[in-house]
Nucleic acid binder design. Sequence first.
DNA 1: AAAAACTATACAATCGATTGTATTTTTTAT
DNA 2: ATAAAAAATACAATCGATTGTATAGTTTTT
Lengths: 356, 356
Amino acid sequence: MKKIKKNITIHDIARELKLDSSTISRALSDSPRVGIKTKERVLSKAKELGYRRNQMASNLRTNKTMTIGVVVPYISRHFFSEAIDGIEQTVADKDYRVIISQSHDDYKLEKKILDGLFMNRVDGLLISASMETPDSSHLSIFKDNRIPVVLFDRYFENGGLSKVIFEDKQGANDLTQHMINQGCKKIFHLAGSIDSQIYQQRYQGYREALKKNDLEFKESFVKPSSLTAEDAVEIIKEILKDKKNLPDALVCGNDISALAIMKYLDEHTEIRVPGDICIGGFSNEPASDLIKPGLTTVDQHPFMIGKTAAEMLLDFINNKEKAFRSSNTVEIKSSLIVRGSTLKKKKKIIKKNNIK
Amino acid sequence: MKKIKKNITIHDIARELKLDSSTISRALSDSPRVGIKTKERVLSKAKELGYRRNQMASNLRTNKTMTIGVVVPYISRHFFSEAIDGIEQTVADKDYRVIISQSHDDYKLEKKILDGLFMNRVDGLLISASMETPDSSHLSIFKDNRIPVVLFDRYFENGGLSKVIFEDKQGANDLTQHMINQGCKKIFHLAGSIDSQIYQQRYQGYREALKKNDLEFKESFVKPSSLTAEDAVEIIKEILKDKKNLPDALVCGNDISALAIMKYLDEHTEIRVPGDICIGGFSNEPASDLIKPGLTTVDQHPFMIGKTAAEMLLDFINNKEKAFRSSNTVEIKSSLIVRGSTLKKKKKIIKKNNIK
DNA sequence: AAAAACTATACAATCGATTGTATTTTTTAT
DNA sequence: ATAAAAAATACAATCGATTGTATAGTTTTT
């Protein structure tokens, strides 16, 4: 009967073969300093005993963990789970592992998580900062210890950190322009937190499009929101109260809020989309393609964002000078997915305006 | 100017305070063997130097990693990302971290991942097996080394492992019964892989409901499918070809396929849901509540499944005898969410049949 | 005041793998 | 055949924290 001894180490193999543990270590890592015959004996004995390298011991000695820390606000949000998918696939390919944590948009928790990840001596960090995070000061420990960090999606201006972001401004601009092309004149904006760069950018893009087309704008067109389904419903109710000032289009900060509003309008009002109001969002949630009419949205390519960020990080890990000599920003291109929710002029394909 | 030395260790603190590193270690873990004054000096010096414990060294010595391995087929699927959310929150509360990997339903990759997780000496493992996984043989290394394992959602009969599963059979039964109550007579089933316990169970639940109600059943009512949106469309096309044998209800193995079919019917046929055909699915995808009519679905409570599995695992980690003395199976209750896609008798609330 | 009991701290081994240096063995060259 | 070169393996230190044992210093007991 084969007995499987627990937690076999290289010393166990060494003892059985009457060799030194250093030879075993070298044999297992295929070092040229070990004879081919010995290598074979070691490999076969390792298999026989069910040896598995203790990664922690190895990590301690080599000061490398083959582990990447990933911090996001919420794992289960479509955008983040797609981004994590991209990250995981990219790094797993190179035999890295990911430790994933969620900050729940809580700065204190985020700090605690970063501390833990540092103690685990991750080889690199990918983080999409919480809404509350004011700056990158809590990342300094990574910088001080030359552990590469790449931000993705959410970021901050200061800090000079490398990042992979989405061209939010352009996306919002395109979306708004598209609505204008459809003949919309009074376009409201459901805006996310002003503390967040990304929602700021979306707001800017919206503003610029209005300006470029000489369309009316008032501060009251902008409705700050948490962009949850519930909050969106509250806001549309509010908007509808002022019957003299109804918008004919609504640029929502995300799909979740846009979808909630469409559902509300359909179930509780006579207002029709896109006939009475055009609606657009961000993120291309799966539902956006399933409802009727489909929701026009700015696709953020979250998988690609995750993949790109992971590739950049791996590059930094392998070329540390790069990581700390300068900072790198990659902007992932947006693409506007036009669906029924903004198609007043139906079926006709509208080309981009060439107004200078 | 304060210089932050890289990678401060307890030895650095010891040197500065002219103490032994063992005293530092004990002071930092608040051992009663260190005087209170010394503790204070150590703590303040640690802070001053920016000391962070090297978890790897600690892990190696204590043979504990405070890390849980999580393996799922696809991170970005709604069900799994919700389950991971539940897992992460539960274990993070107890200061555990999660290493998350995806098997892409590939058995070979799954084996490789498990090997890696074992080498990292995770304290426990949560796994939702890949479709291809035939048995638990690749988990034996965890058993042999007394590392607790809890399966969730996907599982296998043999192996005697603890698991948290969903009552798929009951869910399918309830869904089918509900359709029958609505007056449906010819109910088809879009079935998932027969290799998977969960789809087997759903099929069984469907069958039992038909039998209990003495409804017609033929093998041809069951359509095997990969349950992707694309495949579902192919299958509904196929079904519609046989005009003499159209179903008046369709129990789909998941929401994704149900949603795809509803969209197809709406866009390409005259068939109306629920008027001509009732449709139901599994998982309560976010879109199911947003489309019109809403999709009736069996809610699987993925967050709760993840949370429960994580709690069970933590319990096993802290009580190892429990983990290996017996096996434990928790079945998470299903709940049927009735929406428009199955409501022929509109608005009337239908109570469960009491037919014995 | 000496012995006993207790505190606080130091010493040293250990976890398992890696790696620079030293030594032994084998091969090649003369 | 012997020296030199090369190959294979052994020795020993190390990564940083933990922990059992030993020792120095202090307080209590009688």
